[in-house]
Design a protein around this nucleic acid. Structure first.
Ligand SMILES: [Zn+2]
Ligand SMILES: [Zn+2]
Ligand SMILES: [Zn+2]
Ligand SMILES: [Zn+2]
Lengths: 137, 137
DNA sequence: ATAAACCCTAGAGTTAACTCCAAAGTCAAA
DNA sequence: TTTGACTTTGGAGTTAACTCTAGGGTTTAT
């Protein structure tokens, strides 16, 4: 059971952010000390790591809440529903990865088509590289 | 040369958003009609498609501006700088894809570990699936 | 030729996700 | 035992990315 400052420091977020996440139902502390300090477990830290990773790749807090709801709501839902829901989320993430790869390809094409010399970049075909890739979406 | 409403409709954004992107230096129209209407080319549309895709996967407008700057600034920078910059962006995108895959694995594990039956989901090991994955980040 | 549907600008309002602040209680070390 | 670093709450302020409004001009269809 660690205090808020510790977990904040370990995962590189502010204590304000952690209190905000609690208010938003993203991550509550597992308990409080005698004096009312928030106390977090290692599991809480693991969950926060998940939240941060999801946020980093562009999920909103609401989407993250949905992802976490799979865990929270398991008492009130059937396995069938859980399976259905995770299926949807999986295709959503797969779509994002596909788009990400399209962007990566744009950049790689661009990188390849540039000679890398020290002359001004006017002559290199970067512009067309970007557009060709865009057309082929 | 199409008007703002047409491009907005075709790519599923509002005309307000397009005017906002112009103000932010993300995407200007290629010209104006006699009466001052914005006119866009197919290239503009391709660029907007790129912007939308980048936005969808979690890039901020400022990051997108950086990506587009590769194209815009080519007069004032050397090929060496361009190559350097695209390299950085490529690793940034690759990192994002890696994180995305970690999340995808969490979800897949979760999906696999659920029986999918119509009984309440209490018994299934979803919780641990999420946390195991988080620990292994 | 006139109504509907489009476009313009400038600027105000909104939402998400923080971030900061004030006023006060708690805890560890010197 | 007192200083300083922590914690609490409630609420105000900020930033990004829209979104809307007002008040006007333009284009198109009937
Ligand atoms: Zn080049
Ligand atoms: Zn070159
Ligand atoms: Zn199950
Ligand atoms: Zn089951």
């Amino acid at each position: 059971m660690v205090k808020i400052g510790e977990i904040a420091k370990r995962l590189g977020v502010s204590t304000d952010t952690l209190r905000y996440y609690e208010k938003q139902g993203i991550l509550a502390s597992s308990g409080r000390s005698e004096s009312g300090y928030r106390l977090y477990t290692e599991q809480d830290i693991a969950q926060l790591a998940f939240v941060i990773r999801a946020k980093d790749v562009g999920f909103t807090l609401n989407e993250i809440k949905e992802l976490l709801a799979i865990k929270v709501d398991k008492q009130s839902h059937s396995c069938e529903q859980v399976k259905q829901f995770t299926s949807e989320k999986i295709s959503q993430v797969e779509r994002k990865i596909t788009e990400m790869n399209a962007i990566l390809n744009s950049l790689k094409l661009l990188h390849k088509s540039c000679c890398g010399g020290d002359e001004p970049a006017i002559h290199c075909s970067i512009l067309s590289a970007l557009e060709v890739q865009n057309d082929a979406s």
